[in-house]
Design a protein around this nucleic acid. Structure first.
Lengths: 161, 161, 161, 161
DNA sequence: CATGAATGAGGGTTCATTCAT
DNA sequence: GATGAATGAACCCTCATTCAT
């Protein structure tokens, strides 16, 4: 995961993977059939972690709290999930599989929250939040932003949270 | 540009480029010195188009109009600029050169506009807009969003535009 | 060794090497890392043979016998060592590594012998012999000389051997 | 000549030649037909200089003086002839044309001189001298020898010159 | 006479994948 | 299960040579 996330799928050779894992190159193919199989396995592994992450959000019921939690998600990317997030966004641009499925539960929570807050177009609002998350993630993952906390505050204000 | 934008720098072979351009592979190297030289040339070419695009914004003086123009930018990515935008965002994830310089003029316009509108933290607001643009571009370029116009409206409302 | 010796390092393609060895081109690089690595391996291999050759000389103690043995060396280049000698002299002209180290032990034996024979400038005499060896090798390796035995005799006479 | 002499025929690209000569690459081929044609022209050019060099020797009649002159030749390689000599010896190892023709006049002078000095095998003596010249040239051209004058003296003594 | 754009074969090298052990 | 030697296709790039201008 680390290698794929840092260098991109194409730039990582299977020999590098094997070396880093401390096994023979042959073994990689025995287990994962092909390089792509390895990628799939890695993605699957990480998906579970992300889903667990999203699960925590749904516990809260109060709509504003839900929004807050969701918007905070990309700001709280820890060292552990860092590689996986980077991988996801990296892969998005290389394969054409936009990993929507991952964000589907989030999507529904957003719509529900906006509806409860009487927004006129909950669907579009949800869309806007997801885009914002993409934008935030893009920027944070590429290490550009200096003080994300101010940014978070300014977003919260926009939604009166 | 099209090839790099669609498949990513690494995944495009110089022979593919040559074939698509209808020339010999050797010629590519005669003109651009190396594969990276070709990328640079393509980027430079596109930069000019982007800069021209941004130039139009500065003509307007009224701060709300400026904001509107800027936010609209990613929604108006035409067929012509499509490949270049995709290329920029693609490259961002493959090399570590975040192409900030391109967005620098936009950044200053944003800060100025927010200041004139008496926002309390213009810097962070500008940051937020740029992230939003990244998010919007990411989504539109990966062909995910169905009706972007609603989305645009909902963003405008947020800033009372 | 044979290919490098006959055609010169530059003129030998790795594909030619692979074909002649009856293996795939990839394997050459797996074993030797690069074309230069292959050259080094070949040189190292041959060096050992040469050193073994020189070792025989030192057994003799009597100075004139030592001289005789040393001068005879290039005349006795066998089919086995032929390629390696050719390689050494070939490489000398292509890289700037004059392989002096190989001849260092010989050099000292020569000086010692000339000193014992009361030559006035043993150093220069040794130098002269080494040049002669270079000359002889050059000529024999390029297959020019017809009857080297007469030549050997005439050299021996010069040193009263 | 300089390029070929320094880097070897194979390592010099025609584009390098053209650049160094300050002309277009096409012109090189217009004049010399091919890269090999260029080499031939260069060789031919230099041959004349060498022959002129040798011509001076024949003026002297006294056999010992002739020998001295001939043996001195490689010691007097000037900056002008340096490249050509290097080229000749370089080429010897890359093509199989040993350029004997060049040395033929020298050969005959040597035989004549040794005969006049009543050497028992003038032919082999001439052979020995030529080898010595090759050895000396090899060493001087590869910049190894420190004080060639001592060496020259020690050779002269050997022939009682 | 002179240019330089264009070519195509071949250069060294990497890499995903296979397979005997 | 695990290895690593072996493969061959593809990669980026160089180069001698041609040819329209």
């Amino acid at each position: 995961m680390q290698l794929f996330a840092e260098d991109g799928y194409n730039a990582v050779s299977t020999s590098k993977v094997a070396r880093m894992a401390g096994v023979s190159e042959g073994l990689v193919f025995r287990h994962f059939k092909s390089k792509e199989g390895l990628l799939n396995a890695v993605m699957e592994m990480g998906k579970k972690r992300i889903i667990a992450l999203f699960a925590k959000v749904s516990e809260k019921d109060e709509p504003k709290a839900v929004l807050r939690r969701i918007i905070e998600i990309p700001f709280n990317i820890g060292q552990d999930e860092y590689h996986f997030w980077r991988l996801i966004y990296m892969v998005k641009w290389q394969t054409n599989d936009y990993i929507d499925s991952l964000f589907e539960p989030i999507n529904e929570m957003l719509i529900k929250a906006f509806r409860e807050l009487d927004y006129s177009d909950p669907q579009s609002e949800a869309e806007a939040i997801k885009m914002m998350i993409d934008g935030i993630a893009t920027n944070l993952l590429l290490r550009r932003t200096e003080n994300p906390q101010n940014l978070l505050k300014s977003i919260f204000e926009k939604y009166d949270l």
